[in-house]
Computed example of a mutant assay.
Amino acid sequence: MITVTSAQLSSWLALFVFPFVRILAMIASAPILGNKQTPVRIKIGLSVLLTIIIAPTLTVQPNIDPASAIGFLVIIQQLLAGIAIGFTMRLIFTAIEMAGDIIGIQMGLGFAIFYDPQNSSYTPVIAQLLGILAALVFLSMNGHLIMLEALADSFRAFPVNSTIPAAIALHTLASWGGSIFSNALQLSMPVIGALLISNLALGILTRSAPQLNIFAVGFPVTLAIGFATVMLLLPHIIPLLENIIHSSLGTVLRVMQLFGKS
């Protein structure tokens, strides 16, 4: 007759619940996997499948009961860790969409907005273009698989225990959030430079020929130069996107390692 004690049942439950919370939090907050169009059942099912695969390779403190106060704190800890991983990856697409916003405003396309079902908001058309391009690059370089690999490695860098996360990890995460502006500016700088030169040329032309209607001439010229610069920029954006994606994956592991330093 097989007998199971309450201690064994609690340890088995802890071995499943704690990793499941981190995995589910990561999938819910990560790009592509965490889109609002993805059904909740698929997110939960994928989290359960990954937990079944990853959990046997983990070690959890046997004295942690998921129903206890310490177990509740560990669940909150795992929730924060999963959100930190997904948030770090999502900042890539936020920076790219911000670059598209800057480019669209500089080109005079601030009024050309469409509904973005991914973010449930209205987004300029250039931002949607760069966002779709970033998603395709992310999938083509197996970024979703690399992200899952980083999730599995996070359990080694920051194992499931009752250790209080270090505050420096949150500081590192906030510093990576500041990279939105630098990455967005780096992506949009060529278009900003080209449009600045064209605006200076239009300003000189207006001064030399005051009878010229600058609104009738400047808007088509700005659009043409903007689209031409974006077209020339697209082949060079892909290596930059790959560099940003690899940097974010490195940041994920660094944040998890700092989480484990109490």
Rank of each mutant, 00 (worst) to 15 (best):
I83N: 10
F16K: 03
L223V: 09
H144D: 12
P190K: 08
A201K: 06
S247N: 14
P220M: 09
V137E: 15
A134P: 02
F72P: 03
V137A: 14
I244L: 13
P62V: 07
Q128S: 12
P66I: 05
N63R: 11
S208G: 06
P220N: 07
A174F: 06
V60A: 04
M147H: 05
N243D: 14
R22P: 05
I96C: 01
P62T: 12
T51Y: 01
N199R: 15
S262Y: 05
A209I: 14
L258I: 07
V74F: 02
G131N: 13
I23N: 00
A7K: 15
T5H: 08
L249Y: 06
A224N: 10
L58C: 10
P66W: 09
F259Y: 10
A99C: 11
Q186S: 13
I64G: 01
A28W: 04
S29M: 06
D65E: 13
G193C: 09
L130T: 04
F227P: 00
I105E: 03
P124Q: 06
A194M: 13
T59P: 00
S198M: 14
A152W: 12
L151E: 07
L58H: 02
Q257L: 11
S247I: 01
M1L: 12
T123V: 00
N161G: 13
M256P: 02
M231K: 05
V21R: 00
S208V: 14
L79A: 14
P239C: 03
A152T: 06
H171G: 08
L212K: 03
F227H: 13
T38Y: 06
L200D: 00
W12D: 14
M1A: 10
G110C: 12
S175P: 01
L133S: 10
V125S: 07
L13W: 06
T5Q: 08
Q78I: 09
P220C: 06
I54T: 09
I52S: 10
N183C: 02
I132W: 05
S154Q: 02
P66S: 10
P210N: 12
T94Q: 14
I53Y: 04
L50N: 02
S121A: 14
G34F: 07
L139D: 08
Y115E: 08
L258A: 14
S120C: 05
T229C: 15
I192W: 04
M26V: 04
F259S: 01
A224M: 12
I225P: 03
A84L: 13
Q257A: 11
W12Q: 10
A201I: 15
A95W: 02
R156H: 15
S6C: 05
S182N: 09
